[in-house]
Design a protein around this nucleic acid. Structure first.
Lengths: 337, 337
DNA sequence: CTGTTAGCGCGTTCAA
DNA sequence: TTGAACGCGCTAACAG
């Protein structure tokens, strides 16, 4: 049987409230302090979270709702977030939304019923209606990696527009003019497309519609299909560089060019996102914009924790982080040749 | 404020115990049944799991300890397991062991303190010492994908030795004799190596030590490094086919051969595990052994659920599943040419 | 089948 | 600072 606070009362001869107070950070006479510490160790006492929660109305559990856990990015993010939460003594319930808005809404309902103390969400939905249930239950929500425009929500994101603009400008600076883009039609993909377009426009470069390939969600096939589409263009129209909006997309592109024996960077230049396994291992090393994933996770957890304390200020917290360029050898400098 | 069982007592005029019993599946007079149902809907009543748990000593939460969540396999498995558990009304706390035995042990401790009802684990450790804490707390444990030899534990695994043996036999049947293998030194990798060796031995084929490349854990780099090692062999000694023990390894191998312009299956034949994105998208389509991942997940959950009921029979439940061959075009038939 | 009573383990009044 | 009593929301025992 588990030992309870009563057992340590027997052991020390003190009153329950004294013990309880000390265990929750209160002040007690040094001698009693010692007694309690000893008894706790001896009996291997751990407070019963259920009994405690029944009073404090806290579960010390956080819900993490993720648009898709089977992707590389989601897996890594889960890894970081889970670690940080555990370090703070919180458990985490993960819900995979499977890129489906209605599943996402179900997930929030589930977590609210589970009475989690807070919710972290990388949303699929583009409006915050699905969070009403949480709002009504007064559960703090922080979105990460993606924000919901127009919503009064704490969030931590990276500036995807700026990041992709930088990436494309990097290509332009090296003399590329025919630059194509592959992106998804969801949140991150669209923002990165916008950065691409802005860079092109500001450089006075044309973006024919054949230079943009997109599908609903980020995937290996998206990159694979997109690249093959570009390869069907007349040789004189073929892009000299490809901007890819995500790691999985890059995978697909690399597969496609390898199949037909096109060399990177000699025949085509590539730039993508996230320094993950493949971009690091392949030769030439891929030039990528790297997101500070650990910081995204830690900032989100930090904000959520601050909301969990009593004095949750009403001020919104929006953290905007920046991606940085990690230079590899996948971009050819056309000014040299 | 949340509505409690007392509110629905006020609403219906019935006694608490009557309501409680009905809500837990007991029998009540039809008229009262109706009254309760109505009140529940009207007040949007949900039982407080903490209060309930305080008595029943159940949290309706399962711990899922995974050797590594950032890999493709782990991500997918998590996806399936999470879904199934939620369908059964259970929450899931995920713990990533990061391929580290001591982290794994910490995870179990954490879950025991969280008083989860059961634990699913894809273990890193090869002996079951780290599970003692759970055993002492009388929390049922089921391992999946990997079993711990010599341990009295429910488990669901696939026959990795048989699967890899079949894969290699498939190569042998098509006339391959110089077959190399790339595998990891952990659980799954070693079993798959054993299958490879058995197939070779039974066919009377030689396995020079240069034909086996291995590193500690499965990764893209493992495949990449391994393939490059094989390519350094004198041409006359180079393998005609490669057996790869895992998806990530296959990724690395494909990268390596693409870099040097070796064609598959013309110059080299490949066979691997798991029909995941890349193996499906690439051309030629990779021939793979596919694990019934959904079944692995569902069987594990089923067994765990059966342990959660009262009459948990003492008999061990070990489920052994089989992988099946999914034929692609990555293996050349040497008998034809 | 229904209602009454007790108590799960803990935090939080109050009084001392 | 300490200690006694109360109650969080619910289920389990028993009596009706």
């Amino acid at each position: 049987m588990e030992s309870t606070i009563k057992d340590i009362k027997r052991e020390t001869g003190l009153a329950l409230s004294t013990i309880s107070k000390y265990l929750n950070g209160g002040n007690v006479r040094p001698e009693n302090k010692k007694k309690i510490d000893e008894a706790v160790r001896k009996l291997d006492y751990h407070p019963n979270e259920m009994a405690r929660g029944l009073i404090t109305k806290k579960t010390r559990t956080i819900g993490f709702v993720l648009y898709d856990i089977s992707g590389t990015f989601g897996g890594l993010l889960t890894h970081y977030v889970g670690d940080l939460l555990r370090q703070s003594g919180y458990g985490m319930i993960i819900c995979d939304s499977n890129n489906d808005k209605s599943v996402e809404e179900q997930n929030i309902k589930f977590l609210v019923e589970k009475k989690v103390d807070g919710i972290l969400v990388v949303p699929v939905s583009t409006d915050d209606g699905f969070l009403d249930v949480a709002k009504r239950a007064d559960i703090p929500v922080v979105t990460l990696d993606r924000s919901i425009s127009g919503a009064q929500l704490d969030c931590v994101t990276i500036d995807n527009v700026a990041a992709s603009q930088s990436a494309v400008e990097y290509l332009i600076e090296r003399g590329h003019k025919r630059i194509a883009a592959i992106y998804s039609e969801e949140y991150t993909g669209k923002h990165r497309r916008d950065g691409y377009r802005r860079a092109m426009r500001e450089a006075g470069l044309n973006v024919p519609s054949e230079y943009e390939y997109h599908e609903k969600i980020h995937s290996v096939s998206l990159g694979y299909n997109g690249m093959n589409r570009f390869l069907e263009l007349p040789v004189s129209k073929q892009p000299t560089a490809i901007f890819m909006s995500n790691y999985e997309v890059a995978l697909g592109v690399v597969m496609a060019i390898n199949e037909v024996g096109i060399a990177c960077p000699d025949d085509i230049s590539l730039i993508s996102f996230d320094a993950l396994t493949l971009t690091l291992v392949m030769k030439p090393k891929m030039t990528v914009m790297v997101q500070p994933m650990e910081t995204i996770a830690s900032e989100a957890v930090r904000i959520l924790m601050s909301r969990l304390g009593e004095g949750s200020q009403a001020t919104l917290q929006r953290v905007l982080l920046y991606a940085s360029l990690n230079e590899g050898d996948s971009v050819r400098d056309l000014r040299i040749s």
